[in-house]
């Protein structure tokens, strides 16, 4: 039986084999990515009325999303939040990842697994836990009040709290991305840089940073895209003024039942994320990334 399969396999040419091997993946992608995406796209050109989807091709949803001040405010808030969050995450993740790689020694693996611990619980649970920490009678503020300091208003149901929450959620992703990048980085290149006249900072800037740029950018994207779409975090931490685009979009489906408007918001979000990823891919020059370079053989 298996012999027969092998024989058939050997008779196939390169292209046929490629098709056969990639078919399951392609099918999976189509089923779980392309089909829902097309469904959303289609629905975004329809209309809802009292929880009924009405097939009435129009672009009003897009006009609303793009011209109504409220949705623009949500989108702008989301973009600004996502930018702040991802830049902060990158800035925090670098020293953490660097420290683990350089000084983690044999505990390196353990430390990295430690990074993954928060992943074991769901996002909702983690955000609620964070609410317990940042909230008015959370650990942080109770602690502050104990030692006679005013609670930090800025962290109670504000956009800052949302940002803190998102940073807490996505820092492990960015750290892991940069960690993996540094893991493949040949630190001895720094010896070369130093011998040829670079100080510590210069060596970092000329060698370490550009050669881990791809990992950094991936980490950035891993934070930026979900932050842009975040719904749970602003809901629990953002307070009455902290509604973000993803939260508003989510409520189109769950609360208000205005699905087609929600779908249009989803498409817009998809495009903004897409543009971001495209821009990012443009600023990454793979040749300059050191991929498959000699630097990594060691």
């Amino acid at each position: 039986m298996s012999g027969w399969i092998v024989q058939r396999w050997l008779k196939l040419d390169q292209n046929q084999r490629f098709l056969l091997l990639t078919a399951p993946v392609t099918l999976f992608l189509i089923l779980f990515f392309v089909v829902p995406l097309i469904a959303i796209l289609v629905v975004s050109f329809w209309r809802t009325e009292s929880y009924q989807l009405i097939v009435d091709w129009n672009i009003d949803n897009y006009i609303d999303v793009l011209t109504e001040p409220s949705y623009r405010v949500f989108l702008l808030r989301s973009i600004v939040t996502a930018l702040i969050v991802s830049v902060t995450c990158v800035a925090l993740a670098w020293p953490i990842a660097y420290f683990v790689i350089r000084y983690g020694g044999r505990y390196k693996l353990l430390l990295v697994l430690g990074l993954a611990v928060p992943f074991l619980t769901g996002i909702v649970l983690r955000v609620i836990a964070l609410q317990g920490v940042l909230g008015p009678i959370g650990l942080l503020n109770l602690g502050l009040m104990k030692i006679g300091i005013e609670p930090i208003q800025a962290l109670m149901y504000t956009k800052t709290a949302t940002a803190v929450g998102l940073i807490y959620l996505y820092l492990p992703f960015v750290t892991t991305a940069i960690y993996l990048s540094l893991l493949n980085f040949n630190f001895r290149l720094l010896d070369a840089a130093k011998v040829f006249g670079a100080g510590n900072f210069r060596a970092f800037w000329e060698i370490t940073w550009p050669l881990n740029w791809v990992g950094t950018v991936i980490g950035f994207a891993l934070t930026f895209v979900p932050s842009l779409a975040s719904a749970v975090t602003p809901r629990f931490l953002g307070g009455a003024n902290g509604t973000l685009f993803g939260l508003a979009m989510g409520s189109q489906f769950s609360a208000t039942g205005t699905w087609s408007l929600g779908a249009a918001m989803g498409v817009v979000l998809f495009f903004v994320s897409g543009i971001t990823l495209f821009t990012i891919s443009r600023i990454v020059n793979l040749k300059r990334s050191g991929f498959t370079g000699v630097g990594s053989r060691d």
Binding site: T48, E49, F74, T243, A248, T256
Partner: peptide, 15 residues
């Protein structure tokens, strides 16, 4: 009208 109510709610949230 869920549609009109949604707009009211969004306007409030964005204000």
């Amino acid at each position: 009208s869920p549609e009109k109510w949604e707009r009211v709610w969004s306007n409030m949230e964005a204000a």
